[in-house]
């Protein structure tokens, strides 16, 4: 089963839930799909090794063959190519690697070459196998790294999704069997949660909510969930101890053992629901 942990708003506790859940299960695979800012290993502390590069294909122009006809620049919808009177320019940061320029070139002047945009790292510790994506600084597109990372899904896989409600988040949760949305009981948390719920509903994946920092803010998140019939899986209290453990990169179940069973029970509950859902 693949469980994705997402949130809409950043900093609500996705990584906290992902790591503590994985450690409670004991034997799990964790994919850190927040490839822009991967934080899982701050809590796991595994020795990470390079597993593979993530490349996109970009055009390489043979200037001997190029007649500056401008077909490629006309076709490119990302404005990544510009033809000047005496030269052709390529802006790699705008290129999505779709390959259209090569297809349209009438003179066979365009070849495609790989360009590294990130990498996949691997490490294991305490029964957890961690696969971490890392986007290179200055690269805009996180999605290809996430797509590559998801190829490592297997049994008991937990996906730590990036924040937000845009393409990287959607890519991370797309093929999950269950989605946990982590929120905080504040107006910001609720606003972004509502958008995330709409996306999850669109994907038709069963989901539930964890309210983190329970006790701050107000009751509006709970009211919203009751009104919408959304399941609240767990409430993590707003606690100084949890915040302090978080600040030094320590999973809180290591010092608050009673939570292991709570996470395990929740995981069993989720498994049942995902199974029921898949049989429908």
């Amino acid at each position: 089963m693949i469980v994705a942990i997402a949130s809409g708003k950043g900093g609500t506790g996705k990584t906290t839930v992902a790591t503590n859940l994985a450690l409670s299960i004991g034997k799990a695979r964790l994919l850190d799909c927040d490839v822009e800012e991967p934080n899982v290993n701050i809590f796991l502390n595994a020795e990470l090794k390079h597993l593979k590069d993530v490349n996109v294909m970009i055009p390489s122009i043979n200037k001997q063959k190029c007649t500056l006809c401008g077909e490629c620049a006309k076709a490119c919808r990302y404005n990544a190519l510009a033809v000047l009177p005496k030269d052709i320019m390529f802006f790699s940061e705008l290129c999505h690697g779709c390959g259209l320029c090569k297809l349209v070139c009438p003179y066979n002047a365009i070849n495609e070459v790989p360009k590294k945009i990130g990498e996949i790292l691997y490490g294991s510790k305490n029964g957890i196998e961690l696969y971490q994506g890392l986007l290179n600084i200055g690269e805009a597109m996180a999605t290809p790294v996430i797509r590559e990372l998801k190829n490592f899904s297997s049994q008991n896989t937990i996906i730590d999704a990036p924040p937000g409600n845009a393409c990287p988040t959607m890519e991370a949760m797309r093929d999950a069997d269950y989605i946990i949305l982590v929120t905080e009981p504040t107006p910001f948390g609720l606003h972004d949660l509502k958008i995330a719920v709409e996306i999850v509903k669109k994907f038709k994946i069963p989901f539930g909510i964890i309210i983190n920092k329970y006790g701050i803010g107000n009751e509006d998140v709970e009211k919203y969930c009751r009104h919408e019939g959304i399941k609240i899986l767990m409430k993590l209290p707003h606690s100084k101890k949890i915040a302090e453990l978080y600040s030094v990169g320590k999973p809180f179940i290591e010092e608050m053992d009673e939570w292991r069973d709570k996470f395990l029970n929740m995981y069993e509950e989720i498994k049942d629901e995902a199974t029921r859902y898949s049989k429908r």
């Binding site: 950043g10 927040d34 800012e37 600084i137 200055g138 805009a140 597109m141 996180a142 990036p162 845009a166």
Partner: peptide, 11 residues
Amino acid sequence: SSPGVGCPVIA
């Protein structure tokens, strides 16, 4: 700006 270091942050 948004969190992260990717597309919207670069923009």
